[in-house]
């Protein structure tokens, strides 16, 4: 009984506290840089697509909302021919971002993507691909690792040594 009266008084005092909600469409909420929202595909510093169409994101996606089709350009570099995310299924868990070996797929702080037509929530590659580098500036997957596909010579990566000539005995 007394504790009820005490909690009544405490709730009454909440009247003079700061509001925790805001007038949403007029005031925007603060979203942290790592907030998990709309999914984008980023480019590397040379303005090439980072995505190498490895299918890891599609494999890890718990709701199977990502689908892509890999293809190769004239240098043998892999890239997605189609890349489709069904945002009406996406739960914004961020597992695709974790799985991505090239930082291509990223979740950005944007959630205002309502549509009247459900089909409009299926984003194709041209809707997903952005011109920038997203959260990882200056990162280029092919500079770090990977095969030579016309962007660099063999062993030309930043952390790579020259390829070993297996025919000589000199170390």
């Amino acid at each position: 009984m007394l504790s009820s009266v005490r909690s009544l008084w405490m709730v009454f005092l909440k009247m003079f506290k700061k509001r925790v909600t805001i007038k949403y469409p007029e005031e925007k909420p603060y979203l942290a840089p790592r907030w998990r929202g709309r999914i984008v595909l980023t480019r590397d510093p040379d303005n090439n697509e980072r995505c190498v169409a490895c299918n890891l994101c599609a494999a890890v996606c718990p709701t199977d909302c990502i689908s892509l089709q890999a293809t190769e350009d004239e240098n043998g570099r892999r890239y997605p021919e189609i890349f489709r995310i069904n945002f009406s299924r996406c739960i914004f868990c961020g597992l695709c971002e974790d799985a991505c070996p090239t930082y291509a797929i990223q979740l950005i702080p944007d959630f205002e993507m309502s549509e009247y037509n459900r089909q409009s929530l299926v984003y194709e590659k041209e809707h997903l691909l952005i011109d920038g580098m997203g959260k990882y500036h200056g990162y280029s997957y092919y500079d770090q690792a990977g095969v030579a596909v016309g962007v660099k010579p063999k062993g030309g990566g930043e952390n790579e040594s020259e390829p070993v000539d297996v025919r000589t005995l000199i170390p």
Binding site: K14, M15, V20, T21
Partner: peptide, 10 residues
């Protein structure tokens, strides 16, 4: 709303 630190109908 006032007692739950919200804005309420506005």
């Amino acid at each position: 709303a006032v007692w739950q630190q919200r804005l309420g109908p506005n």
